[in-house]
Amino acid sequence: MILGIETSCDDTCAAVVSEAGIVRSNVIASQGLLHQRYGGVVPEIAAREHLAVIGPVIDDALERAGAELADIDVIAATSGPGLIGALLIGLSTAKALAAARQLPMVAVDHLHAHVVASALGERPIEPPFVALVASGGHTFLARVERFEEHQTLGRTLDDAAGEAFDKGARLLGLPYPGGPEIDRLASEGDSEAFAFPRSAPGEGLDFSFSGLKTALLYAVRDLGEARTAERRADLAASYQRAIVEALLARLESAVIRERVTRVAIGGGVGANRELRSGIEALGDRLGVEVWIPGFSLCTDNAAMIAGAARFQPRLEYPSYLGLDAYARAA
């Protein structure tokens, strides 16, 4: 069994996954509310909190899996990209645990773990497939030929989709994190009420969300405070529709261009209800099979880290003792 540890942003996560990819436990200690009053993740506060809970979170993951440390064969941890101070908590704990038990260790790339999250569970996806990963920190399309690696087809040129949700929510006076708030409010609004721009210029598979954010800013300014408050649900619905359609349009182009028959999503924005139903509809329309992981496998989690570790080289003791974290994608 594989113990996975993930601390790249503001969630402290540990999970136990079998070699066959069955999730035995998936513990996520979210710091969301801690950062609410700052309107975003404060790296130093995130790192302080990770350190305070990493021990109990690992214990919880083992207990929920009905496992002892002695049952663990491999330890996997996210080594990047992410907040360096946060990453180093999970990675240092994982390295020390692995070293003291003389276990092999796998350093997992956070983005790759999102891409292959659908390889987990009773109905694992099979390559080749195209994956759309969208979260607060990253938004990109990838092609997977083999689980060991992925090829990036396109990425956001400015904000990530989740960032667009957070910034939009802020303009609408909604609390952080913005994604769930807009999702909830949008269900009461008219998504056709406002015409917001959809996508980046050009024929490629890149995304751009900064124009959309600016369009919302102007709409809110033109309406004024009182009218904005009145029409908040319509604004949220129209704004969400624009983000989702931008994501779906590029995903559709990728599926057609890459001639794949399987599609997966990953990342926190994958929890958005409109995106989930949109991808199901896209699958039906194009005749491709769709993998939409459960919420707890879309948002940052350690099960995807342990799952991805199955396809990565195992570093034997003591070769990983000097392993370091990296902040940016290579």
């Binding site: 130093e44 790192a47 350190l51 990493i54 021990g55 690992i58 214990d59 440390l69 360096i84 101070g85 180093l88 908590i89 999970g90 240092s92 704990t93 994982a94 390295k95 020390a96 645990l97 692995a98 070293a99 003291a100 038990r101």
Partner: peptide, 17 residues
């Protein structure tokens, strides 16, 4: 801060093992 936390996280992992 970051350096200290590397030390403490390492200690936590070693102790737990």
């Amino acid at each position: 801060f970051t350096g200290l936390r590397i030390g403490l996280a390492t200690a936590i992992g070693l102790a737990r093992a």
